[in-house]
Nucleic acid binder design. Structure first.
Lengths: 126, 126
DNA sequence: CAGGCTATGTTTCTGATAGGAACCAGCAGG
DNA sequence: CCTGCTGGTTCCTATCAGAAACATAGCCTG
């Protein structure tokens, strides 16, 4: 192998690995980013994120809630108002998430550029 | 909204957002982590990662390759030997990835703990 | 008072995707 | 000739994502 020592690896069935699989998700990262500036409403997230359906947003928020990363505060008003907010635990995720998003912002063009340059051999295509 | 200014947001259809969706993926993060120490063979990744099928690994590697994050070097030997390695661009992802994995390693227990504590209302379950 | 509006969430249906297992290539060795 | 090694692909199915319609529940309008 390469330089992996037993205790170093989260590459197995362990809490760390499961947690990576929890947040390493298309919508999860974006939602957490959307919550990184403070409490946000459901509808605000829909507009802010763009492209996510209500279903996926609710589903993602629920998962984060049950994992203790965000809280859900529903005000008993009409029309309903629901705010989501990072928990202290969830707040510690802001830094990693921001590093990722900053990297994407900085290198997004290079990545898409490489994609254009590679006309994808299409090994078994057609 | 909260504190999002127009230029700040990657929350739209832009290179940054697309790139986040590229790497914010269950296997992608783990594979990149597996490659972070140097060139690794296909079979090594299978064992190292654990739980990934050859199909998903190949698929993930191909996607990373076409996006310019890794290179694939196939040696014309028998039995075949194929090594994957981060490109310079891909290497700049190590820091963000490691921050994420370190967070997961540190907080994995807390996350799973919260999951146990929340017996998930099961809104429409059953 | 009927009907529409609001914001959140759920249901339904369908197309895409992940996952597993079997199969393929190509050569070395018994 | 048959087996094994390694990387990769194909097939099939269970699961998931996405879109759109429906549900709720009170307020506002006509």
């Amino acid at each position: 192998m390469s330089g992996f020592v037993p205790g170093d690896s989260f590459l197995a069935d362990c809490p760390g690995r499961l947690t990576v699989e929890l947040i390493a998700d298309k919508w999860t990262v974006v939602v957490l980013y959307g919550l990184s500036k403070g409490p946000v409403r459901h509808g605000e997230l829909i507009e802010l994120i763009g492209g996510i359906s209500r279903k996926m947003l609710t589903q993602t928020l629920r998962r984060l809630e049950t994992h203790g990363l965000i809280t859900r505060h529903a005000y008993a008003e009409v029309p309903p108002r629901v705010e989501y907010e990072l928990t202290p635990l969830g707040a510690t995720l802001i830094d990693p998430i921001h590093m990722l998003t900053e990297w994407a912002r900085a290198n997004g063009d290079a990545v898409l550029d490489a994609l254009e340059a590679d006309p994808q051999p299409v090994t078994h295509g057609d």
